[in-house]
Write a protein that binds this DNA or RNA. Structure first.
Lengths: 143, 143
DNA sequence: CATATAAAGGATAAAAAAGTCTTTTAATCT
DNA sequence: AGATTAAAAGACTTTTTTATCCTTTATATG
């Protein structure tokens, strides 16, 4: 469903959302350790996220990554589309090009609604929404 | 969600289900052409499926692949688990090891039910079920 | 029985994804 | 200004997935 890379991206952003702030920036290695994401690889991903204003970063001493208020209102889909490309989630389960509701592939009915629902959630759920759940104790990030 | 290989596998099996019979076997290249699946690669996949009794095959002149009555009652999940391994569908969206309903990751609620429902369908839907839909005109295979 | 045919099997190649390493740039702090 | 710190950038390596090629085995048929 999601590539390794976009899982890393979402995890890292959530980690920042919970643990970082403009006053308390977090370095790549400090995300890498608790999440078990390879440090150098994570750095690449954070760079990309930073370039597209999904996370904020500052170089040098006391530098690191954090989320601005704007960053916190980014929708999940933006992260995933950036890392995986827009097609990955949208395409037919069997990768049949002209598969749609009017001309469905044999698996279409098994995933159609399911996928559409997931897609809408990804488009409407922000980082802030997820952090809210975590703070309410409704969900958890791996320490 | 599914690897390229298991998409190929499902597509090929469905193609056989609709077009082949013990009297009218179909060769790898005759599946390869209409489905645009690379022939040599498809052959590998059909071999694997044959080895695990998901499709039937006969060598030599007038040989090829077809589905026995038994083959037609195979569940979709068997094909996908064989090609992709069982973990691919089961694992958490963020690949968090101890993610479960009692200790959900932040994306869990977005996919949990959705995935579970899909999983059940894959476990209960046979090739025959899908062929039935195609014959009823409810779904389509790419010519 | 010889021959042609088509799958099975094994070895290899190409492409994509994941991961690493080294250098450069920007910021902070004496 | 100089030293230090941490991200940015770019080149590179490894692993996995996808794909191809060639040889062997089984089978039907003349």
């Amino acid at each position: 469903m999601l590539s390794n890379s976009s899982k890393y991206a979402v995890t890292a952003v959530l980690y920042l959302a919970v643990n970082a702030s403009p006053e308390n920036k977090i370095q790549a290695k400090d995300i890498s350790e608790p999440t078990a994401i390879p440090k150098a690889y994570l750095s690449k991903i954070l760079q990309e996220l930073s370039r597209h204003h999904i996370v904020s970063s500052v170089k040098g001493p006391n530098g690191g990554f954090y989320l601005s208020e704007e960053n916190r209102n980014v929708n999940l889909i933006k992260i995933i589309d950036l890392i995986d490309g827009e097609d990955r989630l949208k395409s037919c389960v069997l990768s049949i090009k002209d598969c749609n509701a009017d001309h469905p592939c044999p698996l279409h009915s098994m995933v159609g609604q399911t996928k559409a629902r997931f897609f809408v959630k990804m488009k409407t759920t922000t980082i802030n929404d997820l952090v809210f759940d975590i703070k309410e104790g409704k969900s958890f990030l791996p320490l």
